[in-house]
Amino acid sequence: MIKITKPGLFSSVQDIGRYGYQKYGVSVSGAMDSISHRLANLLVGNDEYQSTIECTMAGPEMEFHQDCLLSICGGDFNPTINKQSVGMWRPVWVKKGSVLRFGQSIEGCRAYLAVSGGFDVPKVLGSRSTFMRAKMGGFQGRALKKGDQLKTGRASAVAEQIQRLAGKKDGPIVSFHETNWFVRPPYSSRFKRKLPIRVVKSKQTEWFAKDTQNQLVERLFTITAQSDRMGYRLDGPEIKWKEKKEMISEAVSIGTIQVPAEGNPIVLLADRQTTGGYPKIAQVTTVDIPYLAQMKPGETLQFEWISLKEAQQLYLEREKEIQQLKTGLLLKIKGG
């Protein structure tokens, strides 16, 4: 059992999302940075769909009432175990009685904690993701609170192998062991170099004048404080429609950039509603969503137009990279 001693700013149980129920108005939810979430799971021998804890901006503190294999991926929140710095993007074997503490984010916006076997919360409509607005899924349909006790699920056979790997170290008995190798998320170089967020055209892009479409990629936008898991509200040049036209509500998706009449774009994210009634100027490409999700309110970003073809090719390449990462990881585990 893992006991939450400090909840952090906003920590919730998430998995890869709740699919198949959008037609009933149920948001997809799920990890905002799905890449970090998936890697964290793979590093502890889980499948990618297991649940993790997503921490936002300032992370939680928790006690381990059991031995546990864990990994921390995503934003760097300066995590420590018993006040000793612990490595990210790698398996960590922690002894019963240890305290894991996340600090403030140094880099990135969201950190993911995976434990082998995942967090044992009931699936609601096929998913363990927390859908806050409907108080559904995750841990009792809400963000984690002080005193919450989370159980872990059954660890896989691979987890046991990883555990041996992480624990295989000579020297004095300490509260945790970690491997000296680690993985890197496929988007890390884009993130470090602050490259533009790539977008593709949408059905209503032509509702905006050519000049406006150019402004979207030429100017900088700031992520405002009114940004959350539902969406990022941006501040920048006023994005106005060509003419006042009433739009009929229709389906949206992750990365939809919709523009209300006042002219400040909103990028829809994990907890978005299923439908929207504002014109969409563009769509953030799937490959750049995890990178965007790691940007914090107050940070500035730039967009870049790419073609749908490029966006889909980038996605296929990204998934290939993850497959290679998975294969490499398995080889490492087998090789000891």
Binding site: Q22, K23, E250, A251, S253, Q312, L316, E319
Partner: peptide
């Protein structure tokens, strides 16, 4: 096909590009 959402005037299909390939 992952799922579809219908609205007043349209039906939107969400798909998995890997499975399309």
């Amino acid at each position: 096909m992952i799922e579809y959402v219908s609205s007043f005037t349209s039906v939107t299909i969400y798909y998995d590009p890997i499975k399309v390939i």
